[in-house]
Amino acid sequence: MELALGIILGCCALGAGIAMIAGIGPGIGEGNAVASACEAIGRQPESKGSVTTTMIMGCAIAETTGLYALVIAILLIFVAPGMFVNALVSAADKGLFNLVG
């Protein structure tokens, strides 16, 4: 039982960590977007307003993949362990496997 609990909690934490690797992509993408926006403003300072608005929109959309990963990580940390532990306990109550230790 303790082993199963340990595996559940540890794997949930590991999964959350691995899911957040997706944060690399939006970081690079938003960096590129802001760099290009800076260049554009440098070339045409009078178009600063519209360039900034478009850049913020683009950043928000690029951020989405990172936020998917974040939501999955939050679910893995706060929701999944309870669910899995409940499933484990109910399975143990039904006597689906032998309790050792």
Binding site: T64, L67, Y68
Partner: peptide, 13 residues
């Protein structure tokens, strides 16, 4: 789904 996740994820994080 993406609209909801974007808003929720930003404030929540």
């Amino acid at each position: 789904v993406s609209m909801a996740f974007r808003h929720y994820g930003n404030v929540m994080s």
